[in-house]
Design a protein around this nucleic acid. Structure first.
Lengths: 195, 195
DNA sequence: ACCTGAACACCGTTCAAGT
DNA sequence: ACCTGAACACCGTTCAAGT
């Protein structure tokens, strides 16, 4: 059995498994669904287990946000940057990363929306989201720059593309493929140096 | 017995008594101290009583904020406006109202600070506080206008006085009389039309 | 090392029953 | 009309005891 799929493996958890479980709860039920007891129930484990891995609920939340910052910003940026096939291909793969992976453990549109909702009610979270957003915009702008736009135009195009990503994902009933197609079209318009 | 002081009266409460109890909790323990059980304990009454007066905790919170808007804005403004002894006296009585009444049931610096803290974590509250702040600034500016300042200067002076009120009150260990004296001095400088 | 299970001290909400 | 008291279904946290 070469690839260790998910063969029910062992039943001992790591802190990361709790973080994964917490993200599932966040994506499914929003920020206030991050509760020790409920997550434990879903993981079919006693809540006492949680306290072996974390000091308390606050620590888990901080860990979640750190994780999210890494995955949702740096790791994604790194993945796209490593493709190194030119700006257009990189922008396309960014769109794919941002719209896909609904089943992803730590991310995907559902978690993104939940974190935005979280930020609406907790200022510490709002601050983190703001920073992530700035980093993402900078990165997208850098790709447009590489594609030939000048400084100001690249930031403008980045805002349009990124704004559309957020907005389209939050449109009720928008399917991932639809969103990806729309974003692809927008991207073409933005790269098309007319107007 | 002409004046009904607080002769332990009867023991039947009204919705308003719960609101008063909730404000005491807010002033003493901050926004997250607004809990049915804890307030009931302090009022020496069963928490079941609460549910005769309010549908749920959320309803109480909404009622508190409505009350606060009335008291902290319109009622104060009305009180000051009715003095009608000229702008200077009105500004002084505004300062007295804003700095005094630490023991007030629904207001005073302590509650003001707690509500500001509440606004930091709940956006609906933040919005209300913003509106109240705008109304207060408008009113203070109107007094400076009446005192002879022109439009822009009156708004500037209003911001300075109101900002100082908030800031001085939050200074750790600042006594009400000290704050009132400082604000009085600032007021003189602001009315003094040099500079 | 990792987890269970029970315990503790809280919550909000409901509701029959009392006055 | 207003309140009590108990009940229910939750919480977070701790900790001895198990493996």
């Amino acid at each position: 059995m070469p690839y260790g799929f998910s063969m029910t493996k062992k039943n001992t958890l790591k802190a990361e498994d709790w973080i994964r479980g917490a993200f599932r709860a966040l994506g499914a039920g929003g920020p206030q669904a991050i509760r020790v007891e409920a997550i434990a129930r879903n993981m079919k484990v006693s809540k006492g287990s949680f306290y072996w891995h974390f000091r308390d609920l606050g620590t888990l939340k901080v860990a979640m946000l750190e994780h999210w910052v890494d995955i949702a910003t740096f790791e994604t940026i790194a993945k796209v940057a490593q493709k190194g096939e030119g700006a257009y291909a990189q922008l396309l793969s960014l769109i794919a990363l941002a719209t896909g992976d609904q089943s992803a453990d730590y991310g995907g549109p559902r978690v993104e929306a939940a974190i935005r909702e979280w930020a609406r009610t907790e200022k510490s979270v709002a601050q983190i989201v703001e920073e992530v957003e700035a980093a993402r915009l900078d990165f997208v702008a850098s790709l447009f720059l590489k594609a030939g736009a000048d400084g100001e135009a690249s930031r403008q195009k980045a805002r349009l593309l990124y704004g559309a990503m957020i907005g389209l994902e939050q449109l009720p009933g928008s399917e991932p493929e639809q969103v990806r197609r729309d974003l692809g079209r927008l991207l073409e318009r933005l790269l098309d140096n007319r107007a």
